[in-house]
Design a protein around this nucleic acid. Sequence first.
DNA 1: GGCCCACTACCACTTTTGAGGTATCCAGCA
DNA 2: TGCTGGATACCTCAAAAGTGGTAGTGGGCC
Lengths: 209, 209
Amino acid sequence: MSESTRIRVFSVDDHPLLREGIAAIVNSQADMELTVQAATGREALQLYRQHLPDVTLLDLRLPDMTGIDVLIAIRNEFPDARVIMFTTFEGDVEIQRAMEAGARGYVLKNMPPRELVELIRQAHSGRKRVPAEVAAKLAEHLGEERLTQREVDVLRHLAGGNRNRDIAERLFISEETVKVHVKHVMEKLGASDRTQAVVIALRRGIIQL
Amino acid sequence: MSESTRIRVFSVDDHPLLREGIAAIVNSQADMELTVQAATGREALQLYRQHLPDVTLLDLRLPDMTGIDVLIAIRNEFPDARVIMFTTFEGDVEIQRAMEAGARGYVLKNMPPRELVELIRQAHSGRKRVPAEVAAKLAEHLGEERLTQREVDVLRHLAGGNRNRDIAERLFISEETVKVHVKHVMEKLGASDRTQAVVIALRRGIIQL
DNA sequence: GGCCCACTACCACTTTTGAGGTATCCAGCA
DNA sequence: TGCTGGATACCTCAAAAGTGGTAGTGGGCC
């Protein structure tokens, strides 16, 4: 296989040791090479433009911005960009948002190297695939109504330990309206009280710690 | 430097790609080598006995047990074991428990490779060191009273969305006693309500999602 | 023996939450 | 145009949470 047909892989992750591992695995394959690496979102955007890689492995948590935002920015400029989200986190909402933003895959970091390179090949050839494990997470909450922006706002304040009255003040609405939002949040998440709502939201990737 | 004086490193982590990265970095050093790897706690204990490595890099989150438990088990059998905790998580309570259990270091996974190998050398030569970043986390809550076992029990039930009455039933105590525990938890964590107490506890590594 | 601490328990009281319901306004859509 | 969904608001009422204080019991420690 000639140089020019190798899949050029771009790795974006703030863990140097993990990038080292990716480099080792990718470069051990005859049909691909790790062309360039980045540790932050800003760096990722800049280097993407410079190198126009074939496949990008993108971490969800970066020091300066979220992987989702990087993904959106890249696909905004380059709609054909083939990006695989590569992360430890498995909240179904994060998976869903990534796929909606045009990710070609969503892989957990504990994935065996063999499967990772296979996914890189699949993403490169245009297929959109996620491992069964990830798909299952997504399927868990398929039919469910998702939270509105306002509800997520209220949820974040809940996590901060604010009383309904305080939330009302901060959002410039009445306490009664806050109660309505809280009620809807609990209903949609299947929580029995605000505390459980926050825990479920954290688990599902709706809010972050 | 002869073969026999190389630092023999043991890596325990359920992320194959990260282990790959550690292997690459460690083996690139003249004075150390990655001798053996494990992906689970059970495996770690078994392989430790077989290989008696000089320095162990131990992940905090493993599929079958916590890294702390593995650390305790190892140091129970081999009190001189030199173990460095190696993890993404930075709750001060987890750091504290690891150091109390006899860890020689506590390193975040986003650490630059150069510093990691330096820490391996330091741990091997008997020094107990943590990076300033980690030490700062520890210092944040130095003088504070820690939660009792019972309080942590109650906290876990809080996170599950249980009412005081339900917690009382499950722990076979009165609801009034539960209230006392909840009050103490909130006081010690500086939380204004049970929801914030749970969020703080998650952030500090007192409970897990 | 005496002391401290964790756990337990009960009482009284206020504040906050959560469950009902109804209703208006506005924007987007069929 | 009429319908729907989201955000807003107000009402009532019961239940739960949170605050304050007092106190017994058993273990461990000086």
